[in-house]
Write a protein that binds this DNA or RNA. Structure first.
Length: 489
RNA sequence: GGUCUCGUGGCCGAGUGGCUUAGGCACCGGUCUGCAAAACCGGUUACAGCGGUUCGAAUCCGCUCGAGACCUCCA
């Protein structure tokens, strides 16, 4: 079947504001760069949403048979890019508060982050480079930008010269901002300081007495600007131009806009063909954020220790919940919605197990290939996982009907449907089928117990029958009486 | 204040001009069952408001109201 045609894949490109047909720059691989976390604290669920969404993108590209170079950085250098009077970088601040060295902070939270990736079943990127491991590369790019006349040094700091850049480039192409208007619109806190122009941004910042991390540079001791690390690492590992650059929507401006400026200012062309932005996770309609305090940690939800919910949810449920909305939409996280996902997911995974046991017929009573086609169509349309899931539910209905003898399926179609459903649920959506028959010793015991119950039922001994059912229920085992047999889970 | 996005039925959430009864959850009825659960079948509640374009709009345009994001570290 010709499902795996990359030609059909369309991706929404923030640059153009529309879905564009995707074709890789290189024959043999796709290059994708995603902005990773700044490790001054543990990532919250909102952060995870972005990483889960790009995990979906990564997984689908792999599913289509592509080799993907997936680079996601780790920001382990704090940045003081605002001139609003705050003189402390995020990591330095955390280090002071926790009385640790900056590297200890970074290491501590990186361990947590790596652990979360495991828990939430994120595939590890091909490379996870760190900012501090690429200081030299950053310096070299800054030098190139200066040599091209798009940056200037003031008092040991280097700034990107937006005004000069604008003469030959379109600053604001990504975010749609017009610098001319920006000047008046910007909030009053934005003071100009050393900068020649208010919109200029730091490429290198001279060290101050509070800095706990300092590097040497041609301009003296200091630390790199916020945006330059991504330019350095994406260029180093993916080349001057690569296929996809992703990140959270809140990074669109100024971070990604400035990345484009830095690349154009150094190599002469924009870094990525496609810019993808994942939308925010909301709580009660508002963006989950540290400052609002409306966040919870991915670990807390799994452990059921967050005060916002009265029960725990598995990482599978969280993933499934997130996949049920499109990555470019905001998503509201509520207990009711999580409960709905939990039940829906159970039905879906149950359908797979049912399909495995179903017996085949001489012919299929419905068009299995077109069902499978729907899976691909959904994902080819800008990774529309909600549509994919709807199609999977439709397929589940068919499966249940087959089991009930109302539909039929051939052995060949069954094999196709099973492998594709598993492929999409397990490999693409990243759901794991968590163990039901994990204990081999339990099955014979259950067979025995259910046999005894069946005997009681034959004798119309409902007391014994229900005693067994209720007892199992207390042990977390649900008994399901079918037409011919009884199953459990 | 500026720029942008969004406003779908009880909840979550797809859908951008003309059968999507999208899908999930909830609820109601039915089949099945000793009863229940599960499963299956059927059903209920919608496109913020007003006006315009069109043969026809949830979908395009304008206005009003409301919400959010960005402009400052942010996934």
């Amino acid at each position: 079947m010709p499902q795996k045609d990359i030609q059909s894949l369309k991706i929404y490109n923030t640059l153009s504001g529309s879905k564009e047909p995707f074709s890789p720059i290189h024959e043999d691989y796709i290059g994708m760069y995603v902005c990773g976390p700044t490790l001054y604290s543990e990532p919250h669920m909102g952060n995870m949403r972005t990483f889960i969404n790009f995990d979906l993108v990564y997984r689908y590209l792999l599913h289509l048979g592509f080799k993907v170079k997936y680079v996601r950085n780790i920001t382990d250098a704090g940045h003081v890019t605002n001139s609003a009077g705050q003189q402390e970088d995020s990591i330095g601040k955390a280090a002071r508060l926790e009385q640790l060295q900056p590297l200890e902070i970074v290491y501590k939270y990186n361990v947590r982050f790596q652990n979360l990736q495991q828990i939430y079943n994120l595939l590890p990127p091909t490379i996870e480079p760190t900012a501090t491991g690429h200081i030299q590369e950053q310096i070299e790019i800054i030098e190139k930008i200066m040599a091209n006349g798009y940056a200037y040094e003031v008092n040991g700091s280097v700034y990107f010269d937006v005004k000069t850049y604008m003469k030959s480039h379109d600053y604001g192409a990504l975010s749609g901002r017009k610098v001319g208007e920006l000047e008046n619109e910007t909030r009053e806190l934005n003071s100009q300081g050393e900068k020649r122009f208010f919109a200029d941004f730091a490429l290198w910042k001279k060290a101050n007495e509070k800095d706990m991390q300092i590097w040497r540079s041609p301009w003296g001791d200091g630390n790199p600007g916020w945006h330059i690390e991504c330019t350095a690492m994406s260029t180093k590992y993916l080349g001057d131009t690569f296929d996809i650059h992703g990140g959270g929507l809140d990074l669109k401006f100024p971070h990604h806009e400035d990345e484009i400026a830095q690349s154009c200012g150094s190599t002469g062309h924009a870094p990525a063909k496609f810019w993808m932005h994942a939308n925010m996770l909301n709580v009660n309609g508002k963006k989950m954020s540290k400052s609002l305090g409306n966040f919870f940690l991915p670990q807390e939800i799994v452990e059921g220790t967050t005060s916002l919910f009265d029960k725990a949810y598995t990482p599978n449920v969280l993933r499934f919940f997130m996949m049920q909305s499109h990555y470019r939409s905001t998503l509201d996280l509520t207990q009711e919605a999580l409960n709905a996902s939990e039940k829906g997911l159970a039905r879906l995974t149950e359908a797979i197990k049912t399909l495995e046991k179903i017996s085949a017929s001489n012919e299929s009573s419905f068009d299995v290939e077109s069902s499978v086609r729907e899976f691909y169509d959904a994902m080819n349309d800008d990774f529309n996982a909600p549509i994919l899931i709807a199609s999977l539910f439709d397929a589940s209905k068919k499966i249940n009907s087959i089991r009930d003898g109302k539909e039929t399926i051939t052995a060949k179609d069954k094999e196709l449907l099973l492998s594709e459903m598993k492929g999409f649920i397990l490999d693409v959506l990243g759901i794991t089928l968590e163990g039901t028959q994990n204990d081999n010793r339990l099955q014979p015991v259950m067979d025995l117990v259910l046999e005894l119950r069946q005997q009681a039922r034959s004798n119309k001994d409902w007391g014994t029958s229900d005693l067994i059912r209720d007892g199992l229920k207390n042990a977390g085992i649900i008994v399901k009486d079918g037409k011919d047999s009884t199953s459990w889970k």
